[in-house]
Amino acid sequence: MRHVASEQPLDMGHQTETHAWDAELVPGPRGRTRRPEPGCPVEVALAAVSGRWTTLLLRELMGGPRGFTELRTLLPELSAKVLSERLRALQERGLVQAERLPGFPVRTRYELTEAGRTLRSLLVELYATGEELLRLTHAGSGDE
């Protein structure tokens, strides 16, 4: 049985904040969500590096502009189809820009945008965190 008089409309939030947020984990109001939100900074960062091969592609582009063939050489197991898809997705996210070079055959050079270059510290931290997790969970295969 519902007690209609005591219910708040669905769109009405609480008037006071009672949750004690960790100021390091959630330094601003955008992260104070109860579910994944597109404007949450953590969700934005995760979306930027999501997708198989994306982190490796970003890593290679951190070294400077690269052509499609050069990227295929650096990541030989990455198919041309998936490389094209990842580059297109990174362009749509505003992380990579493409420049068509004159001449025949037409060549394209890919370069990180300023937004794409900001991902460097995230990739460095992801690597360090992964190393630590492997060490702590003994998941490493003795490659130490």
Rank of each mutant, 00 (worst) to 15 (best):
Glu99Phe: 03
Val82His: 01
Arg66Tyr: 03
Val96Met: 12
Ser79Cys: 00
Arg86Asn: 06
Ala98Val: 14
Gln97Lys: 10
Leu78Ser: 00
Arg107Ile: 01
Arg100Leu: 04
Val124Ala: 14
Val96Thr: 12
Glu60Gly: 05
Ala115Trp: 09
Arg120Phe: 07
Leu95Gly: 07
Phe68Lys: 04
Thr73Asp: 05
Leu122His: 15
Leu75Gln: 01
Glu92Ser: 08
Leu87Ile: 14
Leu83Pro: 00
Leu61His: 04
Glu77Phe: 00
Glu131Cys: 05
Pro65Ala: 11
Ala115Met: 05
Ala128Leu: 15
Leu74Pro: 08
Val96Phe: 07
Ala89Pro: 00
Glu114Tyr: 14
Gly94Asn: 11
Leu75Thr: 03
Glu77Leu: 01
Thr69Trp: 01
Gly64Asn: 07
Glu70Ile: 03
Leu126Phe: 11
Thr118Glu: 14
Arg107His: 03
Glu111Met: 06
Leu122Pro: 14
Val124Arg: 15
Glu131Asp: 14
Ala128Tyr: 12
Ser79Glu: 04
Arg120Leu: 12
Ser121Cys: 11
Pro102Glu: 06
Arg107Asn: 03
Glu92His: 05
Arg88Glu: 11
Thr118Arg: 13
Arg59Leu: 08
Val82Phe: 00
Leu78Phe: 00
Ala89Cys: 03
Lys81Cys: 01
Leu101His: 04
Thr129Lys: 08
Ser79Ala: 00
Thr129Leu: 12
Leu122Arg: 10
Arg86Leu: 06
Leu122Ile: 13
Leu75Met: 06
Arg100Asp: 10
Glu60Trp: 03
Leu123Phe: 15
Val124Asn: 15
Pro105Glu: 05
Met62Gly: 04
Ala80Phe: 00
Leu95Val: 10
Lys81Ile: 04
Leu123Pro: 13
Met62Leu: 15
Thr118Leu: 12
Gly67Cys: 02
Glu77Asp: 08
Glu125Phe: 04
Glu131Trp: 13
Tyr127Arg: 14
Glu114Ser: 15
Ala89Asn: 02
Glu125Asn: 14
Thr73His: 07
Pro105Trp: 03
Glu111Ile: 09
Arg59Ser: 07
Ser84Thr: 08
Gln97Asp: 13
Glu99Ser: 08
Ala115Leu: 11
Leu95Cys: 05
Glu114Phe: 14
Glu125Arg: 15
Leu123Ile: 13
Thr113Trp: 08
Ala89Thr: 08
Thr113Pro: 06
Phe68Gln: 02
Arg86Thr: 06
Met62Ala: 12
Glu85His: 04
Gly63Met: 05
Glu114Ala: 15
Leu122Gly: 09
Glu114Val: 15
Ala89Glu: 11
Arg120Val: 11
Gly116Asp: 11
Thr129Gln: 10
Val124Glu: 15
Gly64Cys: 10
Arg107Ser: 04
